[in-house]
Computed example of a mutant assay.
Amino acid sequence: MLLYVTLGSNDLAQSSRFYDAALKTLGIERRVTEEDEIGYAHPSDTRCRLWVLKPYDGKEASFGNGSMVTLEAPSRAAVQAFYAAALANGGTDEGAPGLRPFHEHFYACYVRDPDGNKLSAVCEIPA
């Protein structure tokens, strides 16, 4: 359903460190590095599905209230690794890894990137 997602950044160097470390834990790698944007993809994908960029209008990047990007994790350990890497690379806590009430196997964590964009990593595989 989704073609790709973009997130604004005011400091791409800082965002690169954050996303490189956090997404690596989910098997996602950076494929594109430009002056004004970086793009990420899963190795099995032919195109970048997550872009972090300086806003095209030249204004400061900001985050949306109620907006969140949720990334699929292959295991609960990957959710924990994502959370740890995010916090170690400039992210902030929005909810530690754990089961959530959405269904019995919904294991998730929530963080904000250095620009305030909210992210979640979720594993729905039974433990």
Rank of each mutant, 00 (worst) to 15 (best):
F102C: 02
G98V: 00
S62G: 15
K59E: 13
P114L: 03
S16M: 13
R100F: 03
A88L: 07
L50T: 04
K59Y: 11
A85F: 07
Y40N: 01
D113Q: 07
G95L: 04
T92G: 12
S67K: 03
V111Q: 06
K54W: 08
K54H: 15
E34Q: 13
G27Q: 05
E60H: 11
H103K: 06
P97R: 06
D113L: 10
R76L: 07
E34M: 13
G95T: 00
L23H: 09
E124Q: 14
E60I: 07
F18Q: 04
D115P: 10
V5G: 08
L53E: 09
E34S: 10
S15D: 04
L119D: 09
S120C: 15
F102Q: 14
T46A: 12
V5A: 15
A61K: 00
T70Q: 07
F18M: 08
V5F: 11
G95R: 06
A84P: 01
V79D: 11
Y19D: 03
V79M: 10
T25Y: 03
A41P: 02
V69D: 01
A108R: 07
E35V: 10
Q14Y: 07
P74F: 03
A78K: 13
S62C: 10
H103G: 03
Y19K: 03
A73E: 01
W51T: 07
T46W: 00
L71Q: 06
G98M: 03
A108H: 01
M68L: 12
G66A: 05
A13I: 10
A127R: 10
N89W: 01
P101D: 10
R76E: 11
L3C: 08
F18K: 02
L26R: 12
L99V: 02
T92K: 15
E72A: 15
D113R: 04
E124I: 13
T6C: 15
L87C: 08
E60C: 02
I125G: 08
G95N: 06
D57Y: 12
A22E: 01
I28Y: 01
L119I: 09
D11G: 04
T70V: 14
D57Q: 08
L12N: 06
V111P: 02
E37M: 14
Y110S: 14
E35H: 10
V122S: 05
E72T: 14
E35M: 02
G98Y: 04
Q80H: 11
A88C: 06
R30M: 04
A121W: 14
Y110W: 15
W51I: 14
G116S: 06
A85T: 06
P74M: 03
D36S: 13
R47N: 12
I28G: 04
N65P: 12
E35D: 05
S15L: 05
L7N: 04
E72R: 15
Y56P: 00
T70F: 03
K54S: 14
D57A: 07
G95W: 07
A61T: 11
P114Q: 03
Y107Q: 10
N89G: 01
N65I: 13
N65F: 14
A13N: 15
K118E: 10
N65W: 08
Y19A: 12
G98L: 09
E37P: 00
G64C: 05
E124Y: 01
G8R: 04
Y107A: 11
A13H: 13
K118C: 06
E104I: 05
G95H: 01
R76K: 12
N89I: 00
L7Y: 07
I28A: 02
V52E: 05
T46Y: 01
R17Q: 15
E94T: 05
